[in-house]
Design a protein around this nucleic acid. Structure first.
Lengths: 340, 340
DNA sequence: ACTGGCACTCATCCCGGTCGAGTGCCAGCA
DNA sequence: TGCTGGCACTCGACCGGGATGAGTGCCAGT
């Protein structure tokens, strides 16, 4: 049962070689490429133990060994050394993120950067409305019975909705509503707004009561219920690296999963502060992603977290490198947001 | 050189069978499955001519025939009969598009609908700013030296940009600016605004001149230069149907092309009124898409066109069906936009 | 101008044999 | 006890050849 240091070294060597070469690794090749200080026979014995414990397996009898999901897990938890970013990578991050004019711009640049650096599929969640506060609400008259509601959050996100009023409303009344709504809701966490919106409806003068009632419905939808989380995606072409060997030959399930925003949110949305999650193969709850690994973390200005980001790739990925990159990008983006 | 009616019939039969079965079609199978009224030998002679003319080819000596890009082109131009939508499809379209609350919502639903109906990759361009007019401009003070500029177009699109002012500006001045900007620009085509913006800078009182200058830069960027065309994409998983036989085995180039907004715009953005374009294989200017076909058209309220939409699939696609669907969806979306 | 017949081509499939990487086991040695 | 070298064994990958059959081109006959 005991996995002594050498066995762990062997496992590490197997993971590293397999990730690099994409081919099952045999005992002889191992001792040649790593300074293990023992003979292939000894390595074989260690391998037998590792296999018994479920950390590696052989695709077929006379082939080398391949790490299992469990093996990768052990590797990530205890065997991988932090791999510092290269100066080139640091420069790439900085160069990529300066000059973003917009929240949209920031998110797009980030997701492309992540995809490019990790050479995998990158996913970035827009700052979550659930974690934002109201900065400003704007009511723009479109016609006498239609308003455009624009909500600007402190995270820079802007949401808009069309409001169909039950009857015509005068311009002055719209101005009045705008003032009231802003006074009441500005600065509030979105999650805290429902009772305030309710109060608004009651405070409002009789003449605009119907309009306010309709508006309140849309407000609640926009602020809380519809929890419209947005997601940006990039690097799907990277799925085809490794010539269809990864993902057991079919990209189908992966691509399907990537089309579902709900699934993507599950992947990168559930973030605890300053934690980085690595989900390897079977550890993914989503069946379609059983052949993939996901590295994700939260980001936000300072210590607060407003959204998640991460990458998805084959289980045989360069975990240390990917983890370092994801962490670094998240920190840079956080700093960027803090400046606004 | 002459392609008599029967030869055209043969070509049509080949295209239809090949699209259906995905396998090279031989002379014998052809006469079995279609009422051509002649023997396989005759069909073979016709095939020889068709091949000489470049409409079909054989993958290898003892295989059946496969249409070439040129063959598909002839089929689309002269041989395909219009395939009316099934009632189920009509219902699907209606069901899918009612209840959209938002421009975002409309676009998302549309692109998913298209992908689902055609079982291919769908692309929808947001209403182009270049073809929109200004409905309203809003200036939201974020701090004394920062404004959020929100532009609402008549097509429902909303764009926002952060404006860094050169110095602090009073709330009253912001109100004044807002009024001036709206009076000057509302209702104007975005393309016509540059001289008006220029005029604004000169009309404005000395005190807000610096702010207005900065604002004008951002305005011009937002309205004209940045031509921020947005695109929605869905159905990439459909690329994997046909088990890697389509697209000559590699999705790589296709996925790469789909990541580039510029390319997508090229595909569906260049629309002449009420035209439907079919680009088959080699006809695509983009090298990465030489193995694919694109069916695209414009959409918009009434006869005007505000954006493009289309689908991308293998050259061996069901052209009549796809064309009918794309056309129908474009019309429905146009009607939907007309209601706003 | 169409048809049936026929010889021919060539990809696919199946089979058996060879090759070699990699293993497990064991006896010997420190 | 733990490591090592040696050895027999397994089994997938690769290769070549023969059989199969779909599909063709050509030609003579109607």
């Amino acid at each position: 049962m005991g996995l002594d240091d050498r066995k762990l070294d062997v496992l590490r060597a197997i993971v590293e070689d397999y990730v690099a070469t994409q081919e099952p690794v045999g005992s002889k090749a191992l001792v040649e490429r790593h300074q293990l200080g023992v003979s292939p026979a000894t390595v074989r014995n260690d391998m037998a133990v590792l296999e018994e414990e479920g950390y590696i397996r052989q695709p077929h009898t006379s082939a080398g060994r391949v790490p299992t999901d469990r093996g990768y897990r052990l590797f990530v938890d205890r065997l991988s050394r932090v791999k510092p970013l290269t100066p080139a990578e640091r420069r790439a991050i900085e160069r990529f993120l300066v000059g973003a004019v917009d929240l949209d711009d920031v998110v797009h640049r980030t997701v492309r950067l992540l995809a490019q650096l990790t050479r995998q599929v990158a996913v970035v969640q827009y700052p979550s409305l659930a974690r934002s506060s109201v900065r400003h609400l704007e009511l723009v008259p479109i016609s006498t019975t239609r308003l455009m509601l624009v909500m600007i959050a402190d995270t820079g996100r802007v949401e808009q909705r069309l409001v169909e009023l039950p009857g015509p409303v005068a311009a002055d009344d719209v101005t009045d509503l705008r003032r009231r709504v802003n006074e009441k809701l500005c600065g509030e966490k979105l999650a805290d707004t429902p009772p305030l919106v309710q109060a608004l409806v009651e405070e409002v003068p009789q003449t605009v009561r119907p309009a306010m009632t309709t508006l309140s419905t849309v407000l609640l939808e926009t602020l809380v219920e519809r929890h419209e989380e947005r997601i940006a995606l990039a690097g799907t072409a990277n799925l085809t690296r490794g010539g269809l060997l990864d993902f057991q030959g079919s990209l189908r399930p992966i691509l399907e999963a990537l089309e579902e925003e709900v699934i993507l949110l599950k992947l990168i949305g559930e973030v605890e502060p300053s934690t980085l999650r690595v989900r390897i193969g079977d550890e993914n709850e989503i069946d379609n992603l059983r052949a993939a690994s996901v590295v994700s973390t939260g980001y936000g200005p300072g210590a607060t977290i407003v959204g998640g980001l991460g990458v998805l790739g084959p289980t045989r990925m360069d975990y240390p490198g990917t983890i370092a990159t994801v962490r670094a990008v998240a920190r840079y983006v956080g700093d960027l947001l803090a400046q606004n």
